[in-house]
């Protein structure tokens, strides 16, 4: 690369800074507003920096919704769903990568097609099926339909295909069962990809809204945090509730955001490999 003139460099730096500020602005506004008093949040023109960091709203969130319980529900949903996705994806990914069987490519194609299906297309019968299983209004109803995931199978197949066959055959010669081969030989060899999938699944199921809303309607004890947030908005409608809503949003955003910031290498790599190899 030839050295760029100073003016070009200065322009590039200002462009990057401006875009970063624009992109981060809603987050900054969210956090700042959560510390405002109700009166400050209603002023025109808007107050940017609150006079004092009021923690009132964070206390109020717990009065309006059971914030602790909601966060726990979110954690339960995201953790159990992720565990299921890991087990089913590693096993199926292994089979698609290393077994030869009739109809393999057709079956794989069918799963990939399922990956692109927007959830609304199957929502109505799925809702009915889960009610007939007696799981409406329960966390089990939220979790059960999501225990396998086409993206996970796809990702695992891509990475497990790169595990040397010799390694697998050596374990078989030692008398290991196929399940043992998968979980104690193959899985450790693709650990970074498994970590990526775990993080991706956890964040996705922490954030997802449509399905829990449909299954849990009214069962507010079992609401994950994303559903409870809606109840904050209907509390004291209007500008009055802004700090309350912002405090709730901050609580819901923090867990996935913190995970992302610390583990972003995994996230981004898995996204990219899905796109590049796809």
């Amino acid at each position: 690369m030839t050295r760029q003139p100073r003016i070009v460099r200065a322009l590039l730096v200002s462009l990057i800074v401006a875009l970063a500020v624009m992109s981060a602005f809603p987050f900054l506004w969210m956090v700042l507003s959560s510390f405002k008093t109700a009166e400050e949040s209603m002023r025109t023109p808007p107050v940017w920096i609150p006079a004092a960091a009021s923690l009132e709203s964070y206390g109020a969130v717990s009065d309006v919704i059971q914030a602790g319980r909601s966060l726990l529900n979110s954690a339960i949903i995201a953790t159990l769903t992720t565990a299921g996705i890991l087990v089913t994806s590693i096993m199926a990914g292994f089979a698609f990568a290393k077994y030869r069987f009739r109809g393999r490519d057709t079956l794989f194609g069918l799963m990939i097609a399922a990956m692109f299906l927007p959830p609304i297309v199957t929502l109505i019968p799925l809702f009915r099926m889960v009610s007939e299983m007696g799981l409406n209004g329960s966390l089990a109803g939220v979790i059960l339909p999501n225990l396998a995931n086409a993206f996970g199978i796809f990702l695992m197949r891509q990475f497990i295909a790169g595990v040397p066959d010799d390694l697998i055959d050596a374990a078989r010669v030692d008398g290991a069962s196929e399940l043992r081969v998968v979980f104690s030989v193959v899985a450790p060899a693709v650990l970074p990809a498994i970590a990526a999938l775990a993080l991706f699944a956890f964040v996705y199921h922490w954030n997802t809204y449509l399905w829990p809303l449909t299954v849990l309607q009214g069962a507010s004890e079992d609401y994950p945090i994303v559903l409870s947030l809606g109840r904050l908005l209907s509390y004291n409608r209007g500008a009055m509730n802004t700090p309350l809503v912002m405090a709730g949003a901050t609580l819901a955003v923090l867990p996935p955001l913190v995970m992302f910031v610390f583990l972003q290498r995994f996230f981004v790599d898995s996204m990219v490999s899905a796109a590049v190899k796809g």
Binding site: A24, F27, M30, N207, Y209, L233, G248, A252, V253, V261
Partner: peptide, 14 residues
Amino acid sequence: FASYMVPMIAVALV
């Protein structure tokens, strides 16, 4: 990328 990782519902509220 951070904004892609957070709940849409929180984004909508903000």
